[in-house]
Nucleic acid binder design. Sequence first.
DNA 1: ATCGATGCAAAGTTTTTGCAATGCT
DNA 2: AGCATTGCAAAAACTTTGCATCGAT
Lengths: 164, 164
Amino acid sequence: MGGHDELAERLRARGLRMTNQRQQILDAVRALGHATPEQVSDAVPDVDVTTVYRTLELFEDLGLVRHTHLGHGAPSFRPADDQHVHVICHFCGRVVDVPADLVDALSGRLLAERDFTVDRSHFTVFGRCADCAAAGVAVLHASSPAHPAAHRGAQPEQMRGARR
Amino acid sequence: MGGHDELAERLRARGLRMTNQRQQILDAVRALGHATPEQVSDAVPDVDVTTVYRTLELFEDLGLVRHTHLGHGAPSFRPADDQHVHVICHFCGRVVDVPADLVDALSGRLLAERDFTVDRSHFTVFGRCADCAAAGVAVLHASSPAHPAAHRGAQPEQMRGARR
DNA sequence: ATCGATGCAAAGTTTTTGCAATGCT
DNA sequence: AGCATTGCAAAAACTTTGCATCGAT
């Protein structure tokens, strides 16, 4: 997939420099598949968080990584060549990767009807996975929410302060 | 659409209270269609931001509003009965509402193939609109990005500090 | 009179910016 | 040596929490 020093090449082509930190960050994103800046930072303890932010942004400019919003607010970065669509369960937070051609039909319709070109690499679908459905988690569109607070505990979107 | 004091009802059913602020915030979300906490707050100057955050969360519990992530980090809230799918242009930031049945095909496939129930109300599609395509904004998957910095200026995802 | 809701102030998180020191090329 | 890159510190932006006061029921 990604060449050894494809990174070095792309950087030099722009008059930029190859560094240890950059290699580590790119490796981390590739190893993690998709990760928030914080997760990347955790994976690369020797590199300052600031550098992680700056580098992820740079990589996006270089076309090496792309980011998506996987619920909550934290953007999630992943290798640009990852041709998956993310399918996320609101309830258990599981992220499933589905082949990108899943969106081709929808993509075609939007292009035909609205002249809109869908960016497949920035695509996320939310919903409820089989397990959570089986577990009988509250239905999303309940007209009279039974245990609105109940399912909140399992909602990854709400896990803001649950880090350290 | 939404009944006059449907709000009061839902609140009382939970032992909660009807207030002026709550009515204003709900009205604002409905008027705006979709808005970030900040935008809601701007629309309701007499109400403290804290109350806006707390109330939006409450409304989501009550099933009155839903939120989605429209790029960047700020969540966007909108009436729960809004049956639209958001289609967003990365380049100009325009948000187009498309009938929710757009996702039915995709939704059906995920259900059949993965046993996954898509939440249509929490659905966002990113890409490039006709205008930006015509304007010749850099292509997303360019292998050798020509003006990577150029399109950044127009990218709403990057407009973090451009508020006041 | 209760007990929930609000506003204000303060703290917590996440992300950005400035600048001197460091290290590719 | 020259200039991009890094780390550290500080600032900025966004969201949450604590608490006394206010207000709906």
